[in-house]
Nucleic acid binder design. Sequence first.
DNA 1: GTGTTGTTTGGTAACGTTCCCAAATGAGGA
DNA 2: TCCTCATTTGGGAACGTTACCAAACAACAC
Lengths: 352, 352
Amino acid sequence: MRRASQFGRRPTIIDVAIAAGVSKSTAARVMSGQGNVSPKVVAAVRTASRDLGYQRNNMAVSMRSGRSGLIGIIVPDISNPFWAEVVRGAQERAVLSGSSLLIFSSDWSAERERSHLQALVQTRVDGFVLNTIADEGDTQDFTNLGCPFVLIGTTSDLYPDRSSVGSDIPQGVATALDHLSRCGHDLPKLITGPPRRLARAKFVSAINRYFIDRDIDPTGIEAENGEYSVNGGRAAMARLIRHHKGSHMTVFAANDLMALGAMAEARDAGLACPADVSVIGFDGIPSGEFCSPPLTTIAKPSRGIGEDAMRLLGRLIEGDSVVMRPRLPCRLVERGSVLDFSATRERTLHLA
Amino acid sequence: MRRASQFGRRPTIIDVAIAAGVSKSTAARVMSGQGNVSPKVVAAVRTASRDLGYQRNNMAVSMRSGRSGLIGIIVPDISNPFWAEVVRGAQERAVLSGSSLLIFSSDWSAERERSHLQALVQTRVDGFVLNTIADEGDTQDFTNLGCPFVLIGTTSDLYPDRSSVGSDIPQGVATALDHLSRCGHDLPKLITGPPRRLARAKFVSAINRYFIDRDIDPTGIEAENGEYSVNGGRAAMARLIRHHKGSHMTVFAANDLMALGAMAEARDAGLACPADVSVIGFDGIPSGEFCSPPLTTIAKPSRGIGEDAMRLLGRLIEGDSVVMRPRLPCRLVERGSVLDFSATRERTLHLA
DNA sequence: GTGTTGTTTGGTAACGTTCCCAAATGAGGA
DNA sequence: TCCTCATTTGGGAACGTTACCAAACAACAC
């Protein structure tokens, strides 16, 4: 059996054509399966192709067709299981539609985001999915790259006339606060992202709105900023503990990694969760199920965000210029990290 | 300022050349910065390029040069934080070397692996990193795809004359068993991967060897197979619990996700960890730090594996045909999921 | 002015594919 | 035999880039 290596290079469709004794046009017609070829020739070309180990060169195809079959996706932190899950959702759809995914992590650096974006454009991806870390003011210039894209996450609010997919933050926040109030908690303390981040502002304002709508004054709510990581959560929690007066402390973290860090820090400080400290997170990453105690959290539809973004991008690539901005609902995942005061009271009564 | 969209298509280097009033050869010389161009012309071309928003078409470049600047990586399960971390290591190196990573997950399906592999070849990646799920017997045919590659993980042992990067399984296993024995444990029970998987065989045989080398008969060791996932670990643990006689149970899981599952299952069965059940894992995923109790495990150098594989692949792509097969050392991460009988005894004495 | 350098520039081909159009072939009827 | 029509086949161009080679140009010495 002849091999690709016999040429010292990969066989082209011309090699196949020659081997089959036809012209490259005919060989191409066979490969694309568009008919109008005699059965004898089809067989000959197929055989030659198999014998030579022919593999179509997608570079040449995209060169000619203007379609690369490549899709880019840039998220801020691929190490965060939440974003990993979003990417996985996108991946699933990409495989389904026969395209390949170029995955980048901006690591919260605008510089990196820009450079990855340029790499994507130069690679001539058919489109990209982006969670831009751009803050208010310096909105990036990917809007005129001449390449279809779908934004994901909170920062997409900065581009109201562009298609985007996100989770419904106000609804998620309300779900969390409803749960806390149902469990008999007072105003929570917040662990939020870095000061300038838009996501932080959205999170905080959703919380304020919730309380204002219920005639509760939210001005007393304490908030500590931190990086969106376990260590960021630890540091913020350490500060909260230092300033804390009173008995039970309730903490609402803006993402699960920070919630995990907060719980770890509390434990190190000798505080029991949920007895002394209640923690509720935001994201719904798998690790939350196994931590001690299991983390009560607001699960975002991470995989769905990735999937829907790809679906939307697909339509954009097909030329459908519709603008859609779905905000998918979050749901409460009740586990063990939030103390239920009502249940405690009941239990106390039972014991008495 | 003129924009890419003025042509209705992306500007090419010819557009730049025309705008600058030179030939495309000259424009190309400027863009590649290889000198022999008068300063005046350089300035003109630079200006034209910026004005038009010119972005080099990497498809055309790779077409001409035979280099795509694309690298593929296929892992069995991108949802597993261990593999995510390997990919992240690879990503880091890729960005450093100016190439982009195409990431695929085979999800333990040979069919998918083959299809992803074909996608990579057709995209003309410069090389790829692969953890093949191929079992003994049906070794895949990526060896004659005419594309440089580096294998990672246990299955690379099936291709002894190919470059690969892995972790030192025997050393890791020995580290784990040393620790268990130091803590006063008897023979552990095993939670392993699916029966036909080569990784399972390597794991089990490393354990057998360890005991044989120490004149201990390993034949009595119980092992339960399962998928390499949390639920796989749960199911295996359920079976172990059902068959268990005696007091304390010691479990060595072949990966951390299964260890997490085992701990969850034990908890659901009313067994305390580590009091009733000791669990030691293998991988070193971040979630292990936050579970209850924190998971004692053997950490593989996940990120290093990804990095080294890319480094090696880089050399292969450069034409250096050296075969290297580093096996990176694992290290013990001692946390709370393994009961230390010696310490317990001491503490008991102190209390008495 | 002429010849000899060295620098700067432009034209052309090639990478592998697909599409369009024209040419060739075959079948069937007048 | 010749014409018509349908089917099958081949040739050429184009996608955007770079490398090679030759031509043009400038500078300088004779």
